[in-house]
Nucleic acid binder design. Structure first.
Length: 293
DNA sequence: GATCCGTGGTA
DNA sequence: TTACCAAGGAT
């Protein structure tokens, strides 16, 4: 893995994403990384821009209700991320003087910040030399280092060890960003564009003739009819509503009453939904005082 | 380690 | 059209 070559390619070819602009704060980086968890870049751009304009510091988000964060999250998906980001903002404001921590361990202690995001914030927000491992990095290294078509199951310790082996002393954070970019736009899962790859001459997989991986074994994530879909439908009603909605309104989104109740119950347990005193439902913190009949 | 947690673009 | 899957985290 030729770090100089890869970084030069990144300098010339990197996409201009708003959170990569000069002057982006560590808070901006943190927000972008949480939004990008399992979510394509093109869907994040507008929401991130809106969030950073509206809440330029952790304390400005912390001043809002959790429900406001969930509403502003829109349809990015996995709305628990919005709740946890709000909680992380609160923790940063209260416990860290409104300054995003620059150490991995402190970042890991924040809600919604795991092994990837903690290192991404330390690296991209603060320029720290820490290994950053996401799905792109794992795939690129599986091919370039190990000659395999795809990465095996994730193993935090082994993956970190692999990345540490190739991480340069200088410009480590930029190297990691370049590695991720390479996986996102060149060394993709479906149809890798090896013709345009800046490190093709170093690639074990290319050298081996691009062998195919194990075709079998993939559970496949279905969506239609799952609790995730039903939870999404329920929450969509609450996001769109200016006021708490009666249960009857929620009953219209899905025919299976038992599944509906289970999903509503899980949303309440997750703190994504709150019930008012008069029995209606709203996003958390947005339910006004009970209106007595 | 396996499972659950949204959403929508793409081949 | 169906199936895959995109900068993960928590349990």
């Amino acid at each position: 893995m030729n770090a100089t070559q890869l970084i030069a390619w990144f300098d010339a070819e990197a996409r201009e994403l708003p959170w990569r602009a000069p002057g982006t704060t560590p808070w901006g980086v943190l927000v972008s990384e949480v939004m990008l968890q399992q979510t394509p870049v093109h869907r994040v751009v507008d929401v991130w821009t809106e969030w950073l304009a509206r809440w330029p510091r952790p304390s400005s988000l912390a001043a809002e209700t959790p429900g406001t964060a969930v509403r502003a999250w829109g349809k990015l998906g996995y709305p628990r991320r919005a709740l946890r980001l709000h909680a992380a903002a609160t923790a940063i404001a209260v416990q860290h003087g409104d300054v995003v921590p620059d150490e991995v361990d402190a970042l890991l202690a924040l809600p919604g910040i795991g092994a990837y995001t903690a290192r991404a914030v330390a690296a991209f927000g603060y320029g720290r030399r820490v290994p950053v491992v996401d799905t792109n990095v794992r795939r690129v290294l599986a091919r370039a280092m190990h000659g395999l078509a795809d990465s095996g199951p994730p193993s935090t310790s082994r993956d970190l060890s692999d990345v540490t082996r190739v991480l340069p002393q200088a410009q480590a954070a930029r190297f990691s960003a370049a590695l991720m970019e390479l996986g996102a736009v060149v060394c993709t899962a479906r149809r890798p564009r090896c013709g345009g790859c800046p490190v093709a001459s170093d690639c074990a997989w290319l050298r081996a003739g691009r062998p195919t991986g194990n075709v079998a074994a993939r559970p496949g994530q279905r969506y239609a009819g799952t609790d995730r879909q039903v939870r999404g439908l329920l929450l969509d009603v609450l996001r769109a509503a200016a006021d708490p909605v009666p249960r009857a309104r929620l009953d219209t989104v899905w025919p299976d009453a038992q599944q509906r109740e289970r999903c509503l119950g899980s949303l309440l347990l997750d703190g994504l939904v709150q019930q008012t005193h008069d029995g209606r439902f709203a996003l958390p913190g947005e339910a006004p005082a009970a209106i007595t009949p």
